[in-house]
Design a protein around this nucleic acid. Structure first.
Lengths: 176, 176
DNA sequence: CTTTGCATGTAACATGTTACATGATTCA
DNA sequence: TGAATCATGTAACATGTTACATGCAAAG
C-alpha cells in the first residue's frame, strides 16, 4: 500500500498515457496537467520507487517507467475515490478581506489589477491550449478539453470579479 | 521575524478586527474566512506564541490576545506583499483528466454530479452569508462582500461547468 | 451531575519544497 | 569545448494535520 494517494494518482495517470522516465513524468505533469496540478522531483522519485516496490510500475529496457496491469487496477481504484477535500487557502481573498488594514488603499487596487492581469493571461493560455489539444488524436481528448473548459470558466470568473471589484471601489480601471 | 507568513497574516488580521482567545481566533477564521481560508489549532497556538514573543500581540487582562501597534504595522506589511502563489492541486480535475482509465464510466458521472451538488450548495450558502454580512455595521463590509462575490462567481463557474460536462458526455442530468 | 462548549497546548505524523550533488547527452 | 537539457536521487527544511491530554464553565 503506497501512501501519498494524490501524487500516486498523478504519477500512475501520467504513465497510463505513455511510459516515461521520472524526469519525463514531471515534464508531462508540468506541460499537460500544469494548470491544475503540480508535483516536484522530491515527490516523484520516491513515489516511483514505492510504486516499483509495490509492482504497480516497472522499468523497461529503455530505462523508462511503465505502468503494469496491477498499476492500472490501482489507478482505477484511485479514480473511483472521491477527491480528497482541499482546505481552502486563497491568499488573494485573505488580503481583500483584510484590505481595510492596508497602509495605502492603492495596495488593494494593485492587488486587484494583478489578479485581473493574471486571469487575462491564464485565459489566453487556455484558448491556445484548447486549440492545440483539439488537434490531438487521442480518445482522452474530450476529458482533457473538459479540464481546459474548467480553467476558462474560472479564469473568466476571476477576471469579471476583479473588474467588478475595481469598479466597486471607485478605483477604476488602469488608464494607461 | 515570524515565519508562516500566511498563517501570521490570517491571525493578525483576525485580531485586528477584535481581540480574541486562541480558540476565538479559530472560530473567527472558521466562521468568516471559512470559504477561502483554513487554520488548525496546531498552527494557531504556536503562531500566537511567536507573535507574542515578537511583540506583535499581547495578552489582555481578560485573557484574550490583542494586536499591538507593531502588530498593525506588520499586518500592513504582509497585506502589501503579493499573495504567495499556491501550487495548483485540483483533485476533481485530476480525476476528470484521467477519466478514460476509470473502471466504469459511471464513475465520471458520479464525480461530476457530486461537483455540481457541492457547487449548488456552496452557492446557496454564499447567498445567505451575503444577506447576513450586508446587515453588519462595519466599514470592512465592502471588502467582506467582495470575497463573497468571488465565491459566488466561482461556485457558479463550477456549477455551469459540471452541467455542461455532464451534457457533453451524453450522460445527462440525474433523472431522479 | 453530566454533557456540551470553551480553552490551551503538544507530539507524532504526513506532506511537500528546495537546495544540493552528480553525471550523461546533445547541440551550437 | 562549453552550455543547455535530460536524468536521478537525497537531505534538510517548512508546513500543516491529527490525535491526544488536560481542565474549566455553563446549561440542561
Amino acid at each position: 500500500m503506497v501512501r501519498r494517494s494524490q501524487t500516486e494518482l498523478a504519477v500512475l495517470g501520467a504513465l497510463a498515457v505513455e511510459p516515461a522516465t521520472g524526469y519525463g513524468v514531471r515534464e508531462a505533469i508540468k506541460n499537460t496537467l500544469g494548470h491544475f496540478w503540480h508535483e516536484s522531483f522530491g515527490q516523484i522519485y520516491p513515489t516511483l520507487a514505492e510504486l516499483e516496490d509495490a509492482g504497480l510500475v516497472t522499468r523497461t529496457a529503455a530505462g523508462q517507467f511503465a505502468i503494469t496491469a496491477e498499476g492500472r487496477n490501482r489507478l482505477a481504484d484511485l479514480l473511483a475515490e472521491p477527491p480528497t477535500p482541499a482546505r481552502p487557502r486563497n491568499g488573494l481573498l485573505l488580503r481583500v478581506f483584510f484590505a481595510a488594514h492596508m497602509a495605502d488603499p492603492a495596495d488593494l487596487r494593485q492587488l486587484l489589477e494583478q489578479a485581473r492581469e493574471e486571469a487575462a493571461a491564464a485565459l489566453s493560455r487556455y484558448e491556445t491550449l484548447a486549440d492545440e489539444v483539439a488537434l490531438e488524436a487521442n480518445p482522452e481528448v474530450p476529458n482533457w478539453m473538459a479540464t481546459i473548459r474548467y480553467g476558462i470558466r474560472h479564469a473568466r470568473a476571476t477576471l469579471d470579479w476583479a473588474e467588478e471589484t475595481l469598479a466597486d471601489h471607485q478605483l477604476g480601471p488602469d488608464p494607461d
